[in-house]
């Protein structure tokens, strides 16, 4: 089918339904159909990492996945990172990014947060080099990465956070 199809996605613990052609990327579907615009598009060819979201707990480039492919999986976006998905509280990573001035224009920030989240899930006490290597798939044009790396290390030094769901 090239025409629009119904697509049901589980995002941040909530079920959403929309319609889109099979060619619509997960990133576009999240942004345009579900109005979850925290996921950004910086290159649309899988190189910048701004569109990084979690699928079944693992990071994926949402520009390299069609929305139809994400059905039946458990998705998480930056909007769901804070505890209980609320607007008030911040996840320890978000707090550390704030405290350490790890963001400037903010455009790449959601992707970095999701990547760093997966890193700390799989490696709760990374070294600086491990953080730099892990985050090398996320591009930032403002910060020179230094404070992002500092923030991830600072968040890693804190007690284990509650997961997003």
């Amino acid at each position: 089918m090239t025409g629009a199809v119904d697509i049901t996605l589980l995002v941040n613990g909530k079920t959403y339904t929309g319609r889109a052609e099979p060619r619509v990327t997960l990133a576009d579907f999240l942004r345009d159909e579900l109005r979850l615009t925290g996921t950004h598009l910086g290159c649309e060819h899988g190189a910048c990492g701004a569109c990084t979201v979690l699928m079944d707990g693992r990071t994926v480039r949402s520009c390299l996945l069609f929305a139809v492919q994400a059905q039946g999986h458990d998705l998480a976006t930056v909007e769901g990172l804070a505890p209980a998905g609320g607007a008030e509280g911040l996840h320890p990573l978000q707090e550390a990014f704030h405290r350490m001035h790890a963001l400037q224009c903010g455009f790449c920030t959601p992707g970095f947060l999701m990547s760093a989240y997966e890193l700390l899930q799989s490696n709760p006490r990374p070294t600086e080099e491990e953080v730099r290597t892990w985050l090398s798939g996320n591009l930032c044009r403002c910060t020179g990465y230094q404070n992002i790396v500092e923030a991830v290390l600072a968040a890693a030094a804190e007690p284990e956070p509650e997961a997003h769901q």
Partner: peptide, 9 residues
Amino acid sequence: IGHPAIRNR
């Protein structure tokens, strides 16, 4: 190969 998100998929 690429980066974590690439290797995940």
